[in-house]
Computed example of a mutant assay.
Amino acid sequence: MTGPTAALPLHGWVVSVDLWGTLITYGDRNAEAEWRLREFETVLTAFGHDVGPDRLREAVLAVRDDTRARQRDTGEQPPVRDQVMEMLTALNLGSLDPVHEQRLVDTLLIPHTHAVQRACPEVFPGALTALWELRQAGARLVLTSNTLATPASVSRLIMEERGLLSVFDDTVFSSDIGIAKPRREIFAAVASRSQVPLQRVVHVGNSPTTDIAGALNAGCRAVLLTHRDKRCDHDVPVITALDQLPAAILALCAAAPGAA
């Protein structure tokens, strides 16, 4: 292939980028957790369930920690409705009328899925500039993110409010796919939807396990972004700020077999 498009150094490459901890901060997680608990207590009381703050905290946080660990270890993607149902089971509310239970779960889903907005996550410095530089170099950009309490719809809203959504050609969220990183299938979905082989996908993320090991095991290339000197046992480029990302991607792709 000849012409101006083919001359771009990243033409034919896909750069897959993680969201949380890579492009945006986690924000104030305590504020997120406390707001969810307050809203849950208000809803449960309105539905006639006086569970007490300590019992509620124990149940909600136990399910949160368990689902997070299962996702990181196995790539399981628990639907948000199932997460709320598990919390109600942990609260041991007894036998509930099906209609009452459905209305209760529907109501609790709202604070559960929107609590992250109380954390006020912010875009990391240099994120937008780095992404636009990669686009200008010819790369196709795909946002590849795990979700738990925050589904794809809310994640896209957060991205749009921060000017990130329009930069990407595609978004692949685990809640849409039904599986999560580090599973090979989520990286395969990125490649398939982009119509490139897995070895032409470079995944960028902040987790040595879900992002880096997951991408490499799938046959992709990877770049680790670390803000806190995370240990990585894999031989991949490591950057400490997003303004280093375009150079790292360009060097990695240029060194790939058959890149020329």
Rank of each mutant, 00 (worst) to 15 (best):
A149I: 00
L164A: 03
S155R: 02
L134D: 06
P111R: 06
I186T: 04
E185C: 05
F173D: 07
V17G: 00
P182T: 03
N206L: 00
R193T: 04
Y26F: 14
A213H: 11
L8M: 12
V14T: 14
L148Y: 01
A218K: 05
D243V: 07
V190F: 02
T45G: 09
L44F: 04
R36S: 08
T210A: 13
R64N: 15
P237E: 10
V201M: 04
N146E: 08
L143Y: 02
I158Q: 05
F124I: 05
S174A: 10
P98T: 11
G94E: 09
V201D: 02
D211T: 05
E32T: 07
E34R: 14
H234Y: 14
L109T: 10
A137E: 08
D28H: 03
L37I: 07
A62M: 11
R221Q: 15
V202E: 01
R103L: 14
A149C: 07
L93S: 09
P9G: 05
T67Y: 08
A189C: 11
A254I: 05
G178T: 10
V236Y: 02
V99P: 01
T42K: 11
L198F: 03
P237Y: 05
V84S: 05
D211A: 06
T150Y: 03
T147A: 15
V63P: 09
N217K: 12
L245A: 10
D233E: 14
G27F: 03
A115G: 08
D66Y: 06
R72F: 00
D66P: 00
A188S: 12
G138V: 09
A215W: 01
S153M: 09
T45R: 15
L245G: 06
A248P: 10
E133T: 12
Q244G: 02
L148S: 05
E32V: 08
G178L: 09
L164R: 04
H100G: 09
E39G: 09
